[in-house]
Design a binder for these strands. Structure first.
Lengths: 211, 211
DNA sequence: GACAAAACAGGACAACCGGTCTGTTTATAA
DNA sequence: TTATAAACAGACCGGTTGTCCTGTTTTGTC
C-alpha cells in the first residue's frame, strides 16, 4: 500500500522527514473533496495545487500521475468512508436489518442537516471512472464487494442466532446497497434527501419484524 | 424545443433544407454514445467531430456550446431511453409490480446478451453533471421525476382496480427506481449483471402476490 | 561533518481544449 | 432571377491541461 515511503533499509518504517503537517494528506484531502464535488476529469491538478497550497513538484513527488492520485483517493478515502458510514455501524448494530435501517436514517438526517446532497462517495467515482480505466474499475469494484460481504456476513451472524432464516445474505446485502446507492443518486440530482426516507419506508426492512 | 429551426415567417415549420441524412442526428448519436461511455468531461468536441465526420462549423451551427449539446442529449436521448425501457413497458404491463419485475428481467437479459454493462443512461450523466451545472441538474431531475410519477401513476391505477391498497404509490416508485439505479451502478462497476437479478429476488415485488 | 536520498520548489513544454471567426455552398421566399 | 438566411467548411486563437525536468533544501545514516 505505502510502497513510496519505504527506504533502502526496507525493514523498519521511516519516521516522518519533511512534511510535518502532512503534505501528502493535505493533497489527498483536497483531491477527495474536488473529485467528489467536481468529478475527476473536471478537477485540474492546477486547481488542486492551488487549493492545497502545494507546488507542482511536491504533488508530482507524492503522486506521479493524476491517475495515481485518484487511485490513492479511492483506496484510502473512499474505502474508509464506506467502512465508517456503513460497515462499522452495521456490524455494531443489533442485527443486519436494524443496522441497514439505522444507516439510512443517519445519512438522511445528516443530509437534511447539511442542506445539500453531495452523493455517495463510492458511486460518484464509480460512475465516472469504472469504464474509463480497468485499474479504477477493479479498485472500485473491490470496495463494493467488501461492502456487500460485510452486510451479508452480518446476516449470516443473525442466522446463527436463529434469525433471518428465510433470507439470502448476499441478496439482502445487494438490495440494501443498491437501494441506498440509487436513493443517493436521486437525492443528489433532486438535491433533496426525502427520497432516502421514502425508500426506507417502502423497503421491508423497517416494517417487517426481525424474526 | 426546436427554436433553431424556426424562420422569420414564424408560423409554419420549415422543411428540411440541407442535412438530408440528418447531420444533427449524427452528432447527437455520437455525443450520446461518448457521453455515456467516456463521460461528458472526458469527451472532447474534437473526438466527437472526428467520430461523426462533422466539421467544427457544422457542430457549432447545431450546438453553439458543448453544454447545449449535452442538454440536447439529455432532453432528447436520455429522456427517450427512460421512456422506452421503463415508462412504456410499465404502463403496458398488467400491474405496476409486474411491470417493474419484467423491466428488471428484460434489462438483465439484455445485459447478459451484450456481455458488458454500460450503466443507466440517466444515472451516468446525473452523477457527473448534477453538481456541475444547475441547468444540467434541473433537466436530469425532471427525468427522474417523470420516471417516478409514471410508476406511481400505474400503482394508483392498480389501486382503482382494487389492488395495492396498502401501497404508497410514490414510495413504491422511489424504491423501484432507486433499486434499479443502484443495481445498475453495481453491475457497471463489477461488469456483471447478476446483481440485478439478486436485487429483484430480494425485492418483495416478485415474491409477494399482487393483491 | 560527509554523504546519499528523499522532499520539495518552480519553470518549461507540447498537446489539447472549447470557442470564434471568416468564407462558401445550398435552399427558400419573393 | 434575385435576395436572404440557413447550413455547412475549415482555419485560428487564447487559455489550460498533465507531465516532465532541473535545481535546492531537508532529513537520515555512517
Amino acid at each position: 500500500m505505502s510502497a513510496e515511503t519505504t527506504t533502502r533499509s526496507g525493514s523498519r518504517p521511516r519516521k516522518r522527514i519533511n512534511d510535518p503537517e502532512g503534505m501528502r494528506k493535505k493533497v489527498l484531502d483536497v483531491a477527495e473533496e474536488s473529485f467528489q464535488t467536481r468529478g475527476y476529469h473536471a478537477s485540474s491538478l492546477g486547481d488542486l495545487m492551488a487549493a492545497a497550497r502545494v507546488s507542482g513538484g511536491a504533488l508530482h513527488h507524492h503522486f506521479p500521475t493524476k491517475k495515481a492520485l485518484a487511485l490513492a483517493v479511492i483506496d484510502e478515502r473512499v474505502a474508509a468512508a464506506v467502512e465508517e458510514t456503513w460497515i462499522a455501524p452495521v456490524l455494531a448494530a443489533a442485527s443486519a436489518r436494524e443496522g441497514v435501517r439505522s444507516v439510512f436514517e443517519a445519512v438522511a438526517a445528516e443530509l437534511e442537516r447539511q442542506g445539500y446532497v453531495r452523493g455517495c462517495p463510492l458511486n460518484n467515482l464509480a460512475h465516472e471512472l469504472s469504464l474509463a480505466d480497468p485499474d479504477f474499475r477493479v479498485a472500485l469494484a473491490g470496495i463494493f464487494a467488501a461492502w456487500r460481504q460485510a452486510i451479508a456476513g452480518k446476516v449470516m451472524a443473525d442466522q446463527r442466532g436463529g434469525r433471518e432464516q428465510g433470507t439470502d445474505p448476499l441478496r439482502f446485502a445487494a438490495l440494501a446497497i443498491a437501494t441506498y446507492s440509487g436513493a443517493m443518486s436521486m437525492a443528489k440530482t433532486a438535491q433533496d434527501a426525502t427520497v432516502l426516507r421514502d425508500c426506507l419506508a417502502a423497503l421491508p426492512i423497517a416494517t417487517r419484524p426481525m424474526a
